[in-house]
Design a protein around this nucleic acid. Sequence first.
RNA 1: GCUCCUGUAGCUCAAUGGAUAGAGCGAUACCCCCCUAAGGUAUAGGUUGCAGGUUCAACUCCUGUCAGGAGCACCA
Length: 562
Amino acid sequence: MKQKVVKLLSRESRKLKKSEIEKIIEVPQNSDFGDYAFPCFPLVSIFKRNPEQIAQDLAKKLQKKLPREIEKIEVAGAYINFFVNKKILAKDVIKKAIDKNYGKGNYRARVMVEFSQANTHKAFHIGHIRGTSLGESLARILEFNGINVVRANYQGDAGMHVAKWLWCYQKYHKKQKLRKDESWIAEIYVDAVRRLTKDKTKGLQVEVDEINRKLEKAKNKKLMSLWKKTRKLSLDVFETIYRDLNTKFDVYFFERSMEKQGKQIAFELLKKGIAKKSEGAVVMDFEKQGLGVLVLLRKDGTVLYSAKDIALAEKKFKKYKIDSSIYVVGNEQNLYMKQLFKTLELMKLKQASNCKHITYGLVRLPTGKMSSRTGENILYSDFKKEIMDFAKKRIKQREPGLKKQELDKRALAVGISAIKYSMLKQDSKKSFIFIKKDALNFEGNSGPYLQYSYARASSILRKLKGIKLSKKLITEVNPYEFKLLKKISEFPEIINKAYTNLDPSLIANYSYQLAQIFNEFYHVCPVIKAENQQFRVDIVKAFKNVLGNCLNLLGIEVLERM
RNA sequence: GCUCCUGUAGCUCAAUGGAUAGAGCGAUACCCCCCUAAGGUAUAGGUUGCAGGUUCAACUCCUGUCAGGAGCACCA
């Protein structure tokens, strides 16, 4: 529809390019001003007249050539307002939006999305959910647009945090049995950090460093066996969480397996003079570019995260034949990511410019930062229990006799949708303040509200089975029907924007507006008892298809019943 | 100290440089004869941190300033 307006305008004002016109055209927030509006201010410099006059004259010309899709135009000040023919729009939107492929993009590329990157031997807290949800949603958005996506998870199963954990366990908690329990694993780590910070002599850190070296050498059988076992405990916990979150990875990378190549690359960079030795360590010096210093190897020769990540970048392009690589990584690593990409560039990795960092803000508690070092956080497992209990209560109120399996399934879907949606709906680069009371609120602008709207649409269509629809022709499109259809018609544009900006919040906010409009429609326009039954059913079908796709793109499960 | 990000209603957030800055939560008052009330309707709530500038037009862009957050050498 918008294209019709563009076409009409471009015929009458040749001095403007189509793409420029398209940019100027807007959808007024107040629908009294029409369906599309064209402000004539930008034409002032071309026609050298005041914008109101331009609008008048242009409108006069347009008036004579209105296509049937456009019912009328009006001039208001410097604006030309377009009113579309509701019946034609309705027919057009329904036809397109009922199709499963509605809004899908047609791009071709192979892209790796690396996200989640949880560390073993540490807590998986609700902060980790943000990165995981964001990555999964981005992957889905890319796929919806035709991209061949490789989901990758780079898990931190090696490094100083692992050494700390093993040290602490061996020295202070050896009598405790190993447990596949997130909070227990987290506690040991917190204890390690606490002991190390308290130790002013730094004697304990020397012990940890020793363990770190032993780990890297991998000769001490007892230590390696403990590492293997505990590593698996963590990884198993993560897998159950990913299942809850609707995320499946195609590739797992482990820090441990990048150590050798990481070290090698660090030495090569040193040899080529790209890296240098400083205070005994091997570093990349970016001081001149204002990007500080990136340390690759410690002075005791052990390898750091940075060097491993460089090795991984190479491997990604070589082995997985991807065109570009997206890193979904928190904003506390903004500088580090710049350093990493700069290093790849200096190494002359030809795909260096195809690496992109998608940053996201920390999840904070109202009291401040969340940290797995201090234990100031909310563990996923604890939060899940709470939200599941709450969701179950709500579901039972509606359907007391529901079977346990179905009850659990729905409660999980609702709970996960609440947390995911709340995190995805806002600008991902802003920090997210986690307020438990709000997370447990399933009303208003929330994930469950969207699911509920979807379930309502499903319910209508379900009740229709066996009823013969009256095929009465559309005589009139009422304001509620029209508003909903118009919103549905915006879907492809939203998808495209979400794709180019790599921003799921656009879809989240659209979904909410769409659901809101549907609920207004729902209250005013009965479907089953309607005269123009077929028309209303089609609208519901189109809505259900579009909202279903939105929820899918956000990684939120749709529920036929709620 | 330097770099980056963010300041919008009591709280949490929206708003491709365009018409009267919108939602949710919370508060108050309505609506189940009716396809799921996890819903809908209405009211109250704003000098968009502050000061300049650019522009026909600024929450949006620029400069300064204040406040909060993150980062800045062997953590990941």
